[in-house]
Design a protein around this nucleic acid. Structure first.
Length: 300
DNA sequence: AAGCCGTGGCA
DNA sequence: TTGCCAAGGCT
């Protein structure tokens, strides 16, 4: 049974203070942060940041918010334009889900991003993490926001392990929750601080412990920074997979304002079977459509 | 619940 | 070069 926060060498109260103080000085100035955050901006950024680095998100986010400053603006747009604007962020199904979520916000929530966690989780593309992130960062609620950064920081600082497990567990959520201050405002501050710490210092490779506000009390540092001893994390292949082919096909569709021929798509990949499978997948997912002339395009 | 779903930077 | 990694969600 892992020690909880109150039994740790460093108490939850001090941990929160160290992290919040560090964040106040070291936080990056990102466009989806600020005193008067727009919940829609938080939501858009969270969708884009799913498995995608900040630096690649920044320019797309800026263009997106200029074009669609409110959920209703996106909902009124064709989903294909959302996919085109998504560009090469990757995982373009996120653009479909964000567009659908905007429609649901208009239909069910008066065009305002809901603040209730269950309402948020009911939106397409919003899971445990994203719902908590919006509830905390946009609305200042006290809820554990558990992403890969937070899991890593907590596992190191509190549990003394090099990395978290492969997936987020209820124990991860419970432990993170136990570390949060009682007041919603400080809890939200600590949540974003935990994430920032994991992103800037307590990184997966080459963590910068010397500059970490928790270094004197970190269980992992105290243990001599032992190596990860959990199950090996399998990294997915990309080269040669259907995902790569789908990406190449989407490239063609995005780069052409007008519908393209099958031949235009066929040039991107040699293996016909895999090509067909990838294209079928895109059609099934709604990322591509066939028109009445048998031409291929982004969805309407 | 294990596998699928993009993309590109970096060591 | 190849593998690892990046604010997950869905089935």
């Amino acid at each position: 049974m892992p020690r909880n926060a109150t039994q740790s060498a460093i108490g939850a109260h001090l941990l929160a203070e160290r992290i919040i103080d560090w964040y106040d000085v070291n936080a990056r100035d990102l466009p989806w942060r600020g005193v008067d955050v727009d919940p829609w901006a938080v939501m858009v950024s969270e969708f884009m940041l799913q498995q995608t680095p900040v630096n690649r998100v920044l320019p797309v986010f800026e263009a997106w918010m200029v074009k669609w400053p409110a959920p209703a603006d996106l909902a009124a747009e064709s989903v294909g334009e959302a996919v085109r604007m998504w560009g090469k962020l990757g995982y373009p199904r996120r653009a479909l889900r964000l567009h659908a979520a905007a429609g649901a916000i208009v239909a069910d929530h008066g065009g305002v991003v809901p603040r209730d966690v269950d309402d948020l989780k009911a939106l397409p593309g919003v899971g445990d993490y994203t719902a908590a992130a919006i509830a905390s960062f946009a609305y200042g609620q006290r809820i554990a926001v558990v992403d890969t950064n937070v899991r890593r920081v907590v596992h190191r600082a509190v549990l003394g392990a090099a990395e978290a497990g492969q997936s987020t567990t209820k124990a991860d959520f419970a432990l993170t929750d136990s570390l949060l201050p009682s007041t919603p405002q400080r809890a939200a501050r600590m949540s974003i601080g935990l994430m920032e710490l994991g992103a800037l210092l307590c990184t997966a490779t080459n963590p910068v412990c010397e500059r970490c506000p928790l270094r004197t009390d970190c269980a992992w540092v105290a243990a001599g920074r032992p190596a990860y001893d959990g199950k090996p994390k399998r990294v997915q292949k990309f080269a040669g997979t259907d995902r790569q082919v789908r990406g190449l096909l989407m490239d063609v569709l995005r780069d052409n304002e007008r519908a393209v021929t099958k031949a235009d798509l066929d040039v991107v990949w040699q293996d016909a079977d895999q090509r067909e499978r990838a294209l079928d997948g895109l059609l099934r997912d709604g990322l591509a459509v066939i028109d009445e002339n048998g031409l291929f395009a982004l969805p309407d």
